[in-house]
Amino acid sequence: MSKLAIEAKNLTRYFGTKPVVQQVNFTIPVGSVVGLLGLNGAGKSTIIKMLMGMLEPTRGSCSLLGVESTSLGPNERSRIGYTIEGHFLYSGMTVRAAETLQADCFPKWDSLLFQTTLQRFGISPHERIRNLSRGQRAGISIALTLSSQPELLILDDPSLGLDPVSRRALNETILSFMEPGDRTVLLSSHMLDDIERVTDRVMIMTEGRIVVDSSLPHFVSRLSVWTCECSEPLDRVQIARLVSRRQVGRNASFVIVDADEMTQQELHRLGGNTVRQEESTFDEGVMAYMSRNRSAASLMSI
């Protein structure tokens, strides 16, 4: 039995009468890098805020490192790293001064790791924070977070607005953080390429619910893309295990989960011998689950 880094049970949050997170259940064992995906407003940040104990659930509960999020003490918090886009930094400070300020609060501060991370992002410790690029500021945020040697790292959209070089540095930083094997990362991002590279599991949220929770290779291999010339209006098409549909030129395109012989027969009825089947890319799969043309697809789990 592996230990759990994160657990959410029936996690639900309303803002007024509006449900933002609805009965979300998942567990993340120690040693995973999990990507959390979803459109803006899908509920990703609300979940993360509840995990961090910054927001109370309306119903249900969640815990980090075995401790209920609403009662995380300083001891647990020092084992958790949390970075958000636009991390607050005193702009007049030098990088070195920001490090000293932070290091004083953490007994396990790793100054060497701080320097290594700065180097990855091409930052000099003598620089003033106000003179740094957006990518470098993100680098400082993550360097400050990691150098306290947390066991669990929660990143809320850390790559927003980063250039490709900084994104690569961020990916390298996350992967080297994971190397000891007893650490865990939850990464919320819109950068599908980064998620595909760095994570081993994806969770996709739409409208407050988790619609996909799957290992990465498994996710793509269960999906297939089918195209055909289709005389019927798209929104009336009924196919079992249909995830989403789309019109592409004269063709209809369907993303289907766990397609089988039935699928083939159903599509043949629709499009005769114009039916073509392809494998799904990671992007196509994610888009299919996030799209507004999503059908009432079966929920996917690991």
């Binding site: 890098v33 690569r168 990916n171 390298e172 992967l175 080297s176 994971m178 190397e179 590279r197 760095v198 994570t199 081993d200 990465l216 290779p217």
Partner: peptide, 14 residues
Amino acid sequence: VRQLARDLVINPNT
């Protein structure tokens, strides 16, 4: 596994 993952900047499980 570890070396190639590091070189390619990808998850070692991949």
